[in-house]
Design a protein around this nucleic acid. Structure first.
Lengths: 118, 118
DNA sequence: CTGAATCCAGATGGATACTG
DNA sequence: CAGTATCCATCTGGATTCAG
């Protein structure tokens, strides 16, 4: 390649940082399943997501949703119901994850065929 | 959509499991940077990766490489050098991650613009 | 219903030293 | 050079309870 080594390495650092930023926003066991749940139904209440995502505790769901909100991936709306309920939906920025989630799904299917389901 | 609810939910479960399988294979702070390092150079020795990936300890690198090897994402080759050195490269299956890593990189760049670099 | 607070066991991961 | 072993602080996350 014609690139100077230093420039090349600096570019590589940038790429690694970007991927890492993405992974940070999606890290842990629950974020993607939560996003899938919300995305799949458009709008979803706390207790619904709690049911959708197998095995998650309310403590975790609460924490993860807060992180997703900070990263502006989901939008939180308090509904005037009695008792109170809270609705979550993906933001525009959250919706841009759909390609990635699609890719990960496809890759995960192949990976399971090849490795997980040995 | 015309899907019956149960079928729809079962499909959704499958998709969530697949994404989770993918995330499991890539989890933690280090796997993607390690893969990036190897991928970027084609072949890479243990000590090179140790230098490429900022902040990783040899203990972690060793552990992560072992997991990547178990998932058949990297191939390990012992070289007949003195002292011994070990070379890692992506497998064919590991190479199928390039699309995902590319997508994650692009998304990460946008995400940093929007959120991280506030 | 939606969460926050507390408790606590087990996992994670850095630092360091050691081996072939 | 490429790991392995040990120690140990910190983090994670489930269970449970409490509050608005």
């Amino acid at each position: 390649m014609g690139c100077k080594i230093e420039e090349f390495q600096q570019e590589q650092r940038k790429r690694m940082r970007a991927v890492q930023d993405a992974m940070d926003a999606l890290n842990g066991k629950w974020k993607i399943p939560i996003i899938s749940s919300i995305c799949c139904y458009g709008k979803r209440r706390f207790s619904d997501i709690l049911n959708d995502v197998d095995g998650i505790s309310n403590r975790m769901l609460s924490k993860e949703l807060k992180e997703l909100e900070i990263n502006e991936l989901v939008k939180r709306t308090i509904l005037n119901t009695q008792p109170i309920s809270v609705q979550y939906e993906l933001t525009e920025h959250g919706n841009t994850l759909q390609t990635i989630i699609g890719n990960l799904t496809d890759w995960g299917v192949e990976h399971r065929k090849k490795i997980v389901g040995k």
